[in-house]
């Protein structure tokens, strides 16, 4: 096991999450079971108060988790100096078998915790608190997810092995690799580019008509196609190297940390799209604010990502 300051930091905060998350979990279960706004019993009164403790804890966990996730990537990048063969976070993350799964799992959790806050916000806007039971049930499930994530964190850091040779991103993100990503390289990469822009255009149209189900599904598709097209096509222009397909290297200093901007805009755009759409369905009302934020950030993402190949073409007069 590596005992670097970064790892200790992440584990210490995991411990805090675990501690408070557990408290919140037990209260949530109780609230989900006994909540009754019409009752005037002391129990209900107590639950009303405790619901705020849970909300505060979840807010805390989410707000710390967001930057901590970036820090996690940062740490993985740094560990790549120590682990033989790894050139960036990709190699480190994939040095354990569940690495990439863990990575996507962490992102999924960010969506879940974020959505909880949105649900909480809407719940507290209405005197009848229509979502109270659901939000605490959602948290109870989210807590299980959190537990698994903390377990994975610990397992990940303990199984990192300095002396083990790992593949670098060049090997992981190529058609020859046996990793789960490799199938995407066997298809003509331009297809992904066409699909990406097609989805993007549909997404923009969907913001005009604001049909919640359409916005929701397009946003979900958009996340995936955005990441795939980033790996197979747009990334190569960031690196200016047709064979460099790594989604992690762009988070490093050599590329001005552009990866953080790219991923954060993608996250905000799709997060507001998804949660806005879900809330529109639940509230039976079009959540314009969420759609607008979503639209703005999705457009920013598309602009940044398109700028790379276009400037490359202008400079060199040819595509990679």
């Amino acid at each position: 096991m590596l005992l670097t300051p970064e790892i200790i930091t992440i584990l210490a905060l995991d411990f805090i999450f675990l501690f408070f998350g557990t408290i919140a979990f037990f209260i949530s279960i109780r609230i989900a079971r006994y909540w009754d706004l019409n009752s005037t019993t002391p129990l209900q009164y107590k639950l009303e108060k405790q619901s705020f403790l849970v909300a505060t804890i979840i807010k805390y966990i989410f707000v710390v988790k967001l930057p901590l996730f970036l820090f996690f990537i940062f740490t993985a990048n740094k560990l790549s100096n120590v682990i033989v063969g790894a050139m960036c976070a990709a190699g480190v993350v994939n040095s354990v078998s569940f690495g990439s799964a863990m990575f996507f799992y962490k992102i999924l959790n960010l969506y879940i915790f974020g959505f909880w806050l949105v649900l909480n916000h809407f719940d507290l806007k209405n005197e009848n608190q229509p979502y109270t039971r659901y939000k605490f049930l959602l948290y109870a499930i989210g807590f299980i997810f959190l537990l698994v994530e903390i377990y994975l964190d610990i397992d990940f850091f303990t199984s990192l092995d300095v002396s083990k040779l790992v593949s670098c991103c060049g090997a992981l993100f190529s058609a020859a690799s046996t990793s789960s990503f490799s199938f995407i390289f066997t298809v003509n990469k331009l297809y992904f580019v066409y699909i990406f822009y097609a989805i993007f255009v549909l997404l923009m149209i969907s913001y005009i008509f604001k049909n919640a189900f359409v916005v929701l599904s397009l946003n979900l598709i958009y996340v995936f196609i955005a990441i795939i097209s980033l790996i197979v096509f747009f990334g190569t222009y960031i690196y200016q190297l047709p064979t460099h397909h790594c989604p992690f290297c762009m988070l490093q200093k050599n590329y001005d940390y552009i990866g953080y901007v790219v991923y954060i805009t993608l996250y905000i755009g799709t997060f507001f799209g998804i949660s806005g759409a879900i809330m529109s369905i639940l509230e039976k009302k079009k959540e314009k604010f969420y759609y607008n934020v979503s639209a703005i950030f999705n457009v920013i993402y598309a602009i940044i990502i398109s700028a790379y190949p276009i400037t490359y073409y202008i400079k060199h007069g040819a595509w990679l």
């Binding site: 210490a12 805090i16 804890i57 710390v64 930057p67």
Partner: peptide, 12 residues
């Protein structure tokens, strides 16, 4: 990360 969030956590 090792200081500010821990302080805030203690006050929750």
């Amino acid at each position: 990360f090792l200081t500010v969030p821990i302080y805030i956590a203690a006050t929750i």
